[in-house]
Amino acid sequence: MNRRSFLKFGALAGLIGLGASGTAMALASANNPYHSGPVTDHFDGTRFFNPDGAAPKGFSDLLKWQLGGDREPWPASVTSPFAPAKPEPRIEGDRLRVTMVGHATMLIQTAGLNIVTDPVWSDRASPVSFAGPKRFIDPGVVFEDLPKIDVVLLSHNHYDHLDVTTLKRLRQAHNPLVITPLGNDAIIKADAPTMQVMAGDWGDAIQSGPATFHFEPCHHWSARGMNDRSMALWAAFVIETPGGKILHIGDTGFDNGRPYTNARNRHGKFRAAILPVGAYEPRWFMKDQHQNPQEAIEGFLLSGADYALGHHWGTFRLTNEGRDAPKEVLMAELAHKGVAEDRFRPLHVGEVWDYPATA
């Protein structure tokens, strides 16, 4: 393995949160640099975990995956069939519009609020600028064309979701409120000390303007480097607005459907579900932490949402499946299950969806 390949490998390890093996991790310092608090059903005093869930794979499994081949080819670059979107300044009342920027970054507009999820406008989803997963397609909204951003929802700290460079740009241009699970506030504040950040635990809620943002469990993990695995929390969000409730998940394993049934039991009917559908192969490695399109559809049906949007595909190459495989598998499985295509749409970069009021 040459030096450049080693650097790319290291960047990928940081991106997906894989550090040393379980034995070495057990020998790591008990100190958590991001969060301190009482022991709970998902925090052992040092690390967060998925109750009755599966731990992420170790370093030896990462090596096995990376050296195993079986990666479908991707094009050198991609041009979206949709021109870069030019968002309106505000979408008022109970209208709901979502614009796909790329990967897990979306602009959600409703009730006069402009919300951005897991914002990444950088060229790489990586701890370094010269290696790691590179953007295959330009952002669906030019950064300078963004309307005034009120809220950033940040689901967890992997590099394809928490990009400090983009957050600092947003701080300078928009000064939004960042809402994020426990521990990620410390990561953000270390590089952007003047950013407005509010952190919460599963079950907490934060109100901003006409919306309430609820922190919900999902099945994932976190890391920024080789020795901080699961020291910051991950979460799904329920966005409660005058026009209905939105279930937004940045990343999750299917976990026997618990992220969906738990959310439905707590919050009732959803107008929309925003769900990851990509980065799922090989299944032996990814299954516990990244759902595939079939599981995303099952989760959508369990949630009882009227409509679903599929994200987390086609922007950064993270795993083995082809670029368009998530969309193609999703469409085939919708037909197999008899679910109308217009109820679950894997949005292209730059695509805009104005949601109907009801299904």
Score class of each variant (00 low, 15 high):
Ala273Gln: 09
Gln291Trp: 11
Asn292Pro: 05
Gly299Gln: 05
Val329Gln: 05
Ser303Arg: 03
His290Tyr: 04
Pro282Lys: 10
Pro276Met: 02
Tyr280Gly: 01
Ala296Phe: 03
Gln291Asp: 01
Ala263Cys: 03
Arg323Met: 13
Phe285Thr: 01
Thr319Asp: 06
His290Val: 03
Val277Ile: 13
Arg317Val: 02
Met331Asp: 15
Lys327Pro: 00
Pro259Trp: 12
Ile249Phe: 05
Val277Phe: 13
Asp251Asn: 11
Glu298Cys: 10
Phe254Leu: 05
Tyr280Gln: 00
Ala332Ile: 08
Ala335Tyr: 10
Met286Ile: 01
Arg317Lys: 14
Ala308Thr: 04
Phe270Asn: 01
Leu247Ala: 12
Asp306Met: 09
Ala305Tyr: 00
Met331Leu: 14
His267Gly: 04
Asn262Trp: 04
Asn292Ser: 01
Ala273His: 02
Tyr307Val: 02
Gln294Thr: 14
Phe316Ala: 05
Leu275Tyr: 03
Ala273Tyr: 05
Gly304Glu: 03
Leu302Tyr: 13
Met331Lys: 14
Leu301Pro: 15
Gln294Ser: 13
Gln291Gly: 04
Tyr260Cys: 13
Gly304Leu: 01
Asn265Arg: 06
Ala296Ile: 02
Thr261His: 09
Phe270Ser: 04
Thr261Glu: 11
Asp324Thr: 14
Leu247Val: 08
Phe254His: 14
Met331Ser: 12
Leu330Gln: 14
Phe316Ile: 07
Gly250Phe: 07
Gly338Ile: 11
Ala296Thr: 05
Tyr307Arg: 01
Gly314Ile: 07
Val339Thr: 08
Pro293Ile: 01
His312Arg: 06
His267Pro: 06
Leu318His: 03
Tyr260Thr: 07
His311Asn: 12
Ala273Val: 00
His290Met: 12
Ala263Thr: 05
Asp324Tyr: 06
Asn320Phe: 14
Thr319Cys: 12
Leu334Phe: 06
Glu328Phe: 13
Asn262Cys: 11
Gly314Ser: 10
His336Val: 15
Tyr260Ser: 04
Pro282Thr: 01
Thr261Leu: 04
Leu318Ile: 15
Ala279Asn: 13
Phe270Ala: 00
Ala272Trp: 00
Met331Phe: 10
Gln294Ile: 10
Val329Trp: 00
Phe270Tyr: 07
Tyr280Leu: 00
Pro293Tyr: 02
Glu328Met: 10
Phe270Pro: 07
Asp306Arg: 14
Met286Ser: 04
Val277Gly: 08
Phe316Gly: 00
His312Asn: 08
Ala325Glu: 12
